[in-house]
Amino acid sequence: MGRIKSCLALGALGLALSGCSIVAPPYTPSIDNVQTLKNSGAAPTRVGKFTETGTAVPYPIPLRANTLRSPYGDTWSAYLSEAVTRELTMAGKLSPDADVEISGTLLRNEIDPAISTGTGDVSARFVVRKGDAVRYDRIKSVHREWESSFAAAVAIPKAVTEYGYTVQALLTALYADPAFLDALK
């Protein structure tokens, strides 16, 4: 039995080190973010176009010898758009015909499964329009850290999981801005 476990562990390690492409799990909304949106008094809102710019938004994201891909439209801006859409939907605030629209540009999107401390850095410009009027236009950024490992078989899955939490933290920072919540009214 111990020999089988050892063989399985070595096989998993070999796969992790062989350089494969991993698809990020679907975005899981933050209950706290959803509750903030519910309590905000926001009007019905639609999600507009999300784009990305610059070399600070690599696709796919390199994770040592592996790469991380988005499950949505082969872009990280689509991942961010889906995150906003899911949280608005759960809060009961999403409406495709609404006058209020959230759009954005992903400016930085990096995950590093370093040997002892993994990091995630995500930055985006969010714009809220009501009709033709821009009501909000600001950049939000988040930096997160977590315990990582020398072993790729530990560090890579952890970094993949932490990516979703990093996007959640970015949206938490956005929703914590009173000017953003006022722009949704």
Rank of each mutant, 00 (worst) to 15 (best):
G2F: 11
I4C: 11
S6P: 04
L8P: 06
A9L: 08
L17K: 06
C20H: 13
C20Q: 14
I22W: 04
Y27F: 09
P29Y: 07
D32M: 09
N33I: 00
Q35V: 08
Q35C: 12
T36W: 02
T36F: 02
L37S: 00
N39L: 07
S40I: 03
T45Q: 04
F50N: 01
F50K: 01
T51K: 09
E52M: 14
G54E: 04
P60T: 06
P62S: 08
L63C: 02
T67G: 09
P71L: 04
G73M: 15
L80E: 03
L80F: 06
E82P: 13
T85W: 09
R86H: 14
R86E: 13
L88Y: 00
T89K: 08
A91L: 07
A91S: 13
G92F: 08
K93Q: 07
D97I: 15
A98C: 06
R108L: 08
E110H: 07
P113F: 12
S116H: 10
S123C: 07
R129V: 11
K130H: 03
A133K: 14
R135H: 12
Y136G: 08
R138H: 14
R138D: 10
I139F: 08
K140R: 15
E145S: 13
A152L: 07
V154T: 13
A155I: 05
A159H: 07
Y163A: 03
T166I: 08
V167D: 00
Q168C: 12
A169Q: 09
A176F: 02
A179Q: 11
K185I: 05
